[in-house]
Amino acid sequence: MNIVVAMKQIPDLHQIRMRDRQPVLDDVPLTLGNIDKNALEAAVHLRDTHGGKVIALSAGSEELEDTIKEALAAGADEAFMILDDSLDNADSSVIAAVLAATIRKINDVDIILFGEGSGDNYSGQVGSRVAGILGLPQVGYASSMEVQGNSAIVTRSLEDGEEILEVELPVVIAVMADINEPRIPSVSQILKAGRKPQEVLELDDLAIEILEEPVVTESNLAPETPRKQVVVKSVDELIAVLRTEGVIGR
């Protein structure tokens, strides 16, 4: 069984500082998205149970050749990388087109795993878009999964309950962070990562047309909420103020 895990290269969120309400990204080490690591762990687990191969797939800037070692250390058997400096900040539609075109080049893919959202933007679109382009069924919010014969049994964790689906392979699945706890790779796994098979592609190798960026991100700060700054001295006064503001019933 071949499992592709799509993993995004992002700045290490623990090491980002803020200046003038903007993240400072210079010299911040790159890593792979946190939930993507859960997706990888899920893939490794499936491979260990059913055999086959785990293929890490990522599109990003040149540094990816180093960053991808994290996935290879944590259990991926090989990696497919599409390198281009424009890809680090590319729009979800571009990334989806690039990933889908690359997946077409990989033989016999049974499961394509995504993290529910990327560690930086969390727009959560790429998985669905890839499924759309490839014409595959997709399941989101997966909190557990297993494979039986030619189908995947996936539990989706939804706001008001759980849903268990049986889907025929090949399938696209987006996992949640609580699906597992990613393993810590050992020293030898880390040191051997760089020696595992790696396929490097450039945008020209993929027969896709990249459109003008349809979406421009202007800011990813939380919207500012104006504060009323009302000071009260007693509970009665607080209730009165909340009433006047219409926050609680009259």
């Binding site: 080490p29 180093d66 960053t67 070692k69 994290e70 810590i184 020293v187 880390i190 990562a193 760089g194």
Partner: peptide, 17 residues
């Protein structure tokens, strides 16, 4: 190097967790 960073992170993760 990336490998050195990963060894450091591995030990930090194990130690903290």
């Amino acid at each position: 190097t990336k490998e050195q960073l990963l060894i450091q992170k591995m030990a930090r993760d194990f130690a903290e967790r």
